[in-house]
Design a protein around this nucleic acid. Sequence first.
DNA 1: GACACTAAGACAGAAACTGTCTCAATGTCA
DNA 2: TGACATTGAGACAGTTTCTGTCTTAGTGTC
Lengths: 199, 199
Amino acid sequence: MTSDTAAQPRDIEAAIFSAVDSCVTQWGWDKVTMDDICVTAGVSRATVYRLFPGGRDVLFEAVRLGKLEDFFTAMRANVEGSESLEDLLVRCIVVASSELQHDEHLAMMLATVPGETLGDLTVSGLGRIVRVATAFITPLTDEFIPADEAAHIVEVMCRLVISYYLSPSPTLDFANEDATRTFVRTFLLPNTSSVVVTQ
Amino acid sequence: MTSDTAAQPRDIEAAIFSAVDSCVTQWGWDKVTMDDICVTAGVSRATVYRLFPGGRDVLFEAVRLGKLEDFFTAMRANVEGSESLEDLLVRCIVVASSELQHDEHLAMMLATVPGETLGDLTVSGLGRIVRVATAFITPLTDEFIPADEAAHIVEVMCRLVISYYLSPSPTLDFANEDATRTFVRTFLLPNTSSVVVTQ
DNA sequence: GACACTAAGACAGAAACTGTCTCAATGTCA
DNA sequence: TGACATTGAGACAGTTTCTGTCTTAGTGTC
């Protein structure tokens, strides 16, 4: 790094995040050491610990929060301006599924309780995904249906998204908008009181 | 475990070998522990150490030797009965390339010196592959061309096989016999004195 | 019932990892 | 130029993990 100009802290942080990602992809959470991350990021040990005081746990938690923030930011941006419940649900499903397919660690992040050691995606974590996602999405349905109805339908939707992510179907890809729209009309909307389904 | 009849030692050995393979695929040589292997093989620690006295090094060396044996056995079986130099070279290339493509760790095994820690496939290891393969194949050419000529052409062949394995070409697959035959006629046979190339 | 074999796990010593620290090198800014 | 900030390199102790050996109890075979 003789010829480099001084890197900005933000760049270094990004390099470290990216290193965590590729290290975890290569070896899994359990097997990654701080040195692996340092070497991959091309950064010294001291730098990592200075940027993330508290070490491994703090770093991994930061990565987790970063991913969740990105996820929900993408959700919010894509869902904004939905003009019908159908639209809202379709967009939620498509964005969530796309994000999940795009980032192989995201599901585990969503499923992990803060402070918990990151390992494999466990069954108990699924409930957490459902709760978090339901809590995030339900308020968005306010203008279309009553809250009590929303809670139910949103939970069903979340469960379906997770199920199709964990075990993809050859006949239905939730990242595909048209297919998802048909699915929403068939399975979700009929269960709402205040929406007329037009075919 | 409870309902199983007693497993034969050979079965256990095979299970351990297979566990090494899948563990290494998952985590890489450096990150695999003996416990990983035991758990994956569904076998206790004591059993592994009894079957491979000397522990980790001995086990890994056994895996290495096993793979090399399989490789050269396959080579020998497929090359036997070649009726021309062209035939011999084509078969060598096809078998070697197929085996390499089929087993992702084989190249590293070939490249590793006995006793050396198994890590990544290093550049210095390539020379070893070339030497070993050349030493194995050259004698087989005895009946077709003089030894001094063989040494040269076989080395070129080995280098090409390795190169195409490490960096596959979209236009040529050495596992394909017809394509390989054309290649051999074009690039290898013209350099021999005693063979008439027929198009 | 003797025998062979294994799982489970305790154990000490070795090795690896973590987190903190110091120091020199480098780049920035006044 | 000199004060300041930031980084890389690596030493360091404490902790954790891993290794290889060993003992014990359980199971199936002859």
